[in-house]
Design a protein around this nucleic acid. Structure first.
Lengths: 201, 201
DNA sequence: AAATCTCTCTAACAATCGTTAGAGAGGCGG
DNA sequence: CCGCCTCTCTAACGATTGTTAGAGAGATTT
């Protein structure tokens, strides 16, 4: 990790915990181990650090969304039994590993949670990341499942809504507050499967 | 509204949008229309403003929770039909008016969303306000409904979980980002009832 | 009328903020 | 060896931060 990457890493950790404005250039430089003027060699100003983080995140999720079709649910990678959508762990694992449990994504979402209240661009990205995109992903997978006869086609939308509500609530409850420890990940995964036990479309 | 109340009101609006640290004493005083030293007559320091807001909120929700039993759902105030929990608007209206749509509560929740990441006390209050308390309220009402035969008793927990997930997701989606306009309230209420249409315990 | 209390002001403090000019050190190709 | 490029440093700037001492004005109490 070179200096520029180190700066972005440290800045993300600090921004996502205390907010952009509350973190000073000196805070970041102290943690990285450089002088303030060195930071200004890599970034033109403080805002540039935030912008770089957001652009990196944009590219990151664009990459993920480009591979929706590879998410398990195409019948080749899993067997679908009626009323067994839950325990089959269709896309839970995928969403966790590449989205919610991923340190970079997780911290970026926290950062957006804080900054969205006074920044329209960030709010748009926040809503896309937490509501629009996941819903689209779920819809994509569940439509494929419906085609395979896992459940009647006209139920798909209601099922997706229910699933999306569960996942969103649990995400906010376990993954977007406090430190993202292994214990919290486990608590999240446990309740996902517990809830999915009562999830019978 | 006296000066002290005005300070708290202005501070809450600013804190909930930009975060505690990003708002300066001079920002608040400028908006209120007083000099900085006047603020220090009413509050011993900046932190004291935040603490006062939190204590006020604590008292506020303690008052609300003391009246759980008055929330519609006791059969006297509503008729319960099987599979009609949704359209009966059991407690939707109550929750909205006294909790989510209430400007003070709504702004306090936003403030807690921002500050919870680096303040353990605020995080505890945040989790209680958004997850623990609502779950308890829903459980209380649905248990009474089960007693009246609206649905089998052993289904109560699953129903509450489903309901809680819906309400939590919609709250984050519509009420805890952007300005809380009438349009957003309507969008929220609309999707509540739309979702509840597919909500059949 | 004098004294006290309540509230707001002027004016300033040391500390910290984001940012910049310019020098120095190391590695590179000419 | 020289000049150039990349990266980091020292040192400082004006602006803003939270906070305080102390005076003044108005109402209330003695």
């Amino acid at each position: 990790m070179n200096t520029k990457e180190k700066i972005m890493d440290v800045a993300l950790h600090m921004f996502s915990e205390r907010g952009y404005e509350a973190v000073s250039i000196r805070d970041i430089c102290g943690e990285v181990g450089i002088k303030e003027s060195t930071l200004y060699y890599h970034f033109k100003n403080k805002k540039d650090i935030l912008d770089s983080l957001i652009e990196k995140f944009r590219n990151h999720i664009d990459g993920l969304l480009g591979h929706i079709d590879e998410i398990p649910g195409d019948g080749k990678q899993m067997k679908v039994k009626k009323n067994d959508i839950a325990s089959s762990k269709i896309m839970d694992t995928y969403m966790m590993d590449s989205y919610l449990f991923d340190p970079f994504c997780n911290l970026m979402i926290r950062l957006m949670m804080i900054e969205q209240f006074h920044n329209e661009d960030i709010r748009a990205l926040y809503e896309k990341t937490l509501f629009t995109d996941p819903y689209e992903i779920y819809m994509n997978v569940f439509r494929r499942l419906a085609k395979q006869g896992a459940f009647p086609k006209e139920q798909a939308e209601n099922i997706v809504r229910q699933y999306h509500a569960y996942m969103t609530m649990l995400t906010f409850k376990y993954l977007l507050n406090g430190e993202l420890t292994e214990a919290r990940k486990k608590a999240y995964a446990k309740e996902v499967h517990s809830l999915m036990g009562g999830f019978n479309p």
